[in-house]
Design a binder for these strands. Sequence first.
DNA 1: CACGGGTGCGCG
DNA 2: AAAGCGCGCACCCGTG
Length: 560
Amino acid sequence: MHIVLDRSGASAIRAIRLDDDGTILGDETMERADLPAFARAAEPEAPRWVWSDTRAWYPALLAAGVRVERCVDLQLSHTILRLSALSASSTLALAPPGPWDAAPDISEEPAVSHVALFDLDEEPAEPGETISALDEFTAQREAVDGSTSPGRLRLLLAAESAGALIAAEMRSAGLPYSAERHDALLTELLGPRPRPGSRPVVLEQLIGEIRDVLESPSLNPDSAPDLMRALQRAGLIVTSTRSWELRKLEHPVIDPLLRYKKLSRLLSANGWGWLDAWIRDGRFRPDYVPGGVVTGRWATRGGGALQLPRQVRGAVVADDGWKLVVADAAQLEPRILTGLSGDTAMAAAGRGKDLYEGIVASGAVDERAHAKVAMLGAMYGATTGESGRLMPRLTRAFPRAIRLVEEAARAGERGEIVTSRLGRSSPRPGSSWLATQSAASGAESTDADERRARSQARDWGRFTRNFVVQASAAEWALCWMAELRKRLVALAPSDRLEDGPHLVYFLHDEVIVHTPAGLAEQTAEAVTAAAAEAGRLLFGGFPVEFPVTAAIVDSYAHAK
DNA sequence: CACGGGTGCGCG
DNA sequence: AAAGCGCGCACCCGTG
């Protein structure tokens, strides 16, 4: 059963019950304040809630203590179906841009008065104003049912929507985070917290030292041009001021400069200001954006949650009597490529724990580091350097896997789209890309035109090459989390999210579950079982394994 | 003063 | 331009 929620009229909410054929079973209207009670009462029937946008609907339910098991996020689903090659001939995909193609509403509050961004050619109306949730849902079902692979798309939309629920729940629960430990770390490295407008003493000292050594009393080391000039005056030959480049040099300024760069980065990205802005009541609540990346990976807005430096992970600590289960998928992307291509030789190499060791054992390359750099090169499109040199050996050992990424690259170079395992397709290249390509094939094109076009075509080919792997890996990760969430609900002692084990962090191929200590072992088993299930969902019986490491720890810093 | 491109660096 | 993919964010600096 589905329950479609619609807010198209003023403040009232309509709830329309549908059976599996889409027949309307009931239609009622309620005030917004009554929705949590309604949802709580209906949830035991395990409906799939259909709503415009999870971030607009679900936080209020969570705040009222109501979780839902399943939903359809129409906005996220719409975006997938509009672009997918599998549903390209549907009415939904062929329609001109409409209200559901507007930039997604990212406000926290239910969309009472959300304002569209008027930088588009067309001015799309608000979702729900002109096309109701029910009509959109109907159009989406038609698009899926009439697609070339309904099963895959159904799974993708379910996984994407489950991800939206999880993102809202993770934000609601928050990542357990010790402001005290974070502050202690900052104080240890930078000195005591300075008053607003001044620099920590350690940075002040380092700047003094750098200025002395370079004899540049007014140097601002945060200014790349300024720093570059000062380094050149000191006789250092550099083409940039990047740390990795400076590290190669030998000069008394290098050590304090690198220390300055590291510490000032810590201060500006995760200093006291970040602590004040993002940590409340022992929780970090980042704003996750499911589907925020073209490949289907999540993004975040503010707080830099997906760039939490290793340096500060010691501040992520379980509550008393609780544990963190920190899990990551080992060599996820190469294993995804294995499944995508059905490469049995690579599947054999990946049997067991470490795929790269397996590649060494297969005889293709002679050490683990080479296996890793070669695989990354294959998936990212490296042509030169060590990775480029290793490619022929990799191609000989794993022809099917390499052929898959090569074909994706060629398609991109031709301006075609590519599609992930479950049906997410890459965007088409933009108008300037097409203009450059056609300029190069015109009658009076110059060598420069052709060079530019070729280089740009290769750039796009590297994008599509990586897209098939990254997007499919993102799908695997969504299925993993959705399966894990299901298993965690089964372990939970109550309906309340924070009474039982629950997801608190997600980082592409890594999750953290916060769990009562007594359930930590079962949680770790659930993590592993969910990974195996995700592999079956994507690749059926093909024997590619997805091992995960699951560490039971008190602090994130203790994992791995 | 706001904005946007460039640089640099954190994560996968 | 680190050898290649995908991001977010802080800061500088030139432009309007």
